[in-house]
Design a protein around this nucleic acid. Structure first.
Lengths: 311, 311
DNA sequence: TAAAAATACTCCATAGGTATTTTAT
DNA sequence: ATAAAATACCTATGGAGTATTTTTA
């Protein structure tokens, strides 16, 4: 493929994303004819069409799709060249694109920001909050440098770095505070409030209750832990939240917290990043800094009744 | 690293290889000032020197070396784009750069060439004979598409495809033809003729004799199996050769062949190629074609005394 | 007929060439 | 003193722009 240019690869990838010459061109900050020309040139080099022009909508040919897939990894490699340069500039500095899942963000992020801005003052953190699947996709595509998620991810191209484990606790109406802590089986009979599809925390909670199958259950959905706790306060059911969420979410609501006896449901929170990222060593240093923070304290508002029911 | 071009990556890699602006430029078919310009431009983009200019000899900086390493994998990816296109053109056609180890080449290659030119007439095979280490290096660098070597290689980035296993046989002076076949231990006491360092066959033979350590032994070296057999004929000692070499190497020499009783020393011959090679499926097809050939027959000149001693 | 891509052409940025100077051994 | 790289300057290719035509749903 002598003669291809990185520009051409960028253009065909943009075209693959937008499926539209005009918009793809715009995304590349060039005009539509310029992009058309380069695509045409690329197809001439390849000797075969990469794009199916069909009036309204365009599609990639089979070869085109395969071509784009490879082109993307090449472009990722090129992107990583700049990370290489940054890595050589000594202590991690510049922009860090950090992803974090919604069930961790509000409770852990403040400490993360504080620790990083203290230990790595040259670092400018760019945040993105999204569910695991979306974060992992962004990571592997190079749109993100680092993510805080629940482990394990088990993606060979990604490096995992555990930070801490934490228990889940039960949130129920304050009126139920003195009742015994329900077993997983008992939980199944109660109206369980859960996050909507896509949140890993939802799956973790479900697996604790052994409700992994698609059986119809007394389940309602909320879009944030905060909402769920409010719903519990309104007497709509019970829910699980991670321990780190306790201080923030149970401040002034009519709910009670109860710990489960061992084996309590738990999750492991950690960092993930591309193994191929030249900043890998620096990212591990960030891991060390964050691990030193330990788990966000679930203490503070540690409710008395929790210990009462547990003992 | 917005703004880098593939040309610049090619140039810095050439400079890394040649350590000389003039010759690097020549290898890229441009003039020295043109290359100097592009390197300078690249260093401006990076914001740091990649090359240490030291009058006579130049060196890469630490960053430069790391940069070149990544650049090479990027360029390999680009090379593979053309393989992708070839793969889409249906039956394997065009140039195939095939490597093969010296202890297999003379005995197996004729059949390989014959089979490939029959089944894949569009294929133009480009040969390179070298020891395993060199072939593997060329494979991973993309200078070779496919290699015939002794397995296993155990390189994660390479795919292995076994073709056949074959025994090693003992070659000794014809005068010794009626003696019993020596045990591995007995072999250690004899003067064993071996290939020079680097040939995997040497190591395999040594490991059979359990002479893997660096103990001083009665060992002499030759540079080809043919030479070794001639030396045996001259009464200088004994040697091992793979079964496939028997017909060609023992035609008119005063040597006798003896098979070892089980467990006889063996080797496994197979293909290796880069997993990332887009031609992977086609290369496997080649594997299927070659596997159908079976092991090159050690028959033909199968010596009588071999069976005599074995029974 | 209307939206979208291709074509025609023009321009300018820049990669690369030649000639020369600077540098380091 | 000499080999090697940098600099100066020029040229030409080709990438990108504007204007326009062609295509097809």
């Amino acid at each position: 493929m002598i003669g291809v240019t990185l520009k051409q690869l960028r253009y065909i990838c943009a075209l693959d994303r937008h499926r539209h010459f005009g918009r793809a061109a715009e995304s590349c900050s060039i005009t539509q004819p310029a992009l058309s020309q380069q695509i045409k040139e690329l197809e001439a080099l390849v000797g075969a069409p990469l794009v199916e022009r069909g009036g309204r909508a365009i599609r990639m040919t089979a070869l085109g799709a395969a071509f784009v897939a490879r082109a993307q990894t090449i472009l990722l490699g090129v992107e990583e060249l700049s990370d290489l340069v940054r890595a050589a500039e000594g202590p991690l500095a510049g922009r860090l694109r950090l992803g974090i899942i919604p069930t961790v963000a509000p409770y852990f992020l403040p400490q993360v920001i504080k620790a990083l801005s203290h230990d790595l003052p040259g670092l400018e953190v760019e945040m993105r909050e999204a569910v695991t699947k979306s974060l992992i996709a962004d990571l592997t595509e190079g749109a993100l440098d680092l993510a805080i998620v629940a482990l394990p991810i088990s993606e060979p191209s990604l490096r995992e770095y555990p930070l801490f484990d934490e228990d889940f606790v039960l949130v129920r109406p304050r009126a139920d505070a003195d009742r015994p802590v329900p077993s997983p089986e008992a939980l199944q009979a109660m109206r369980l409030l859960l996050l909507e599809e896509g949140h890993c925390f939802r799956d973790q909670a479900l697996s604790f209750c052994e409700m992994s199958g698609p059986q119809p259950r007394q389940v309602m959905e909320g879009s944030s832990l905060s909402t769920l706790v409010q719903m519990v306060g309104a007497g709509m059911g019970v829910t699980l939240i991670p321990e780190m969420a306790v201080p923030l979410e149970t401040r002034s609501t009519a709910v009670a917290i109860a710990r489960f006896p061992a084996p309590a449901p738990r999750r492991s929170i950690g960092l993930v990043w591309r193994r191929s990222n030249p900043l890998s060593d620096q990212l591990q240093r960030i891991g060390e800094i964050l691990r030193r923070l330990g788990a966000p304290r679930g203490g503070g508002v540690e409710p008395v009744n929790a210990r009462a029911t547990a003992s």
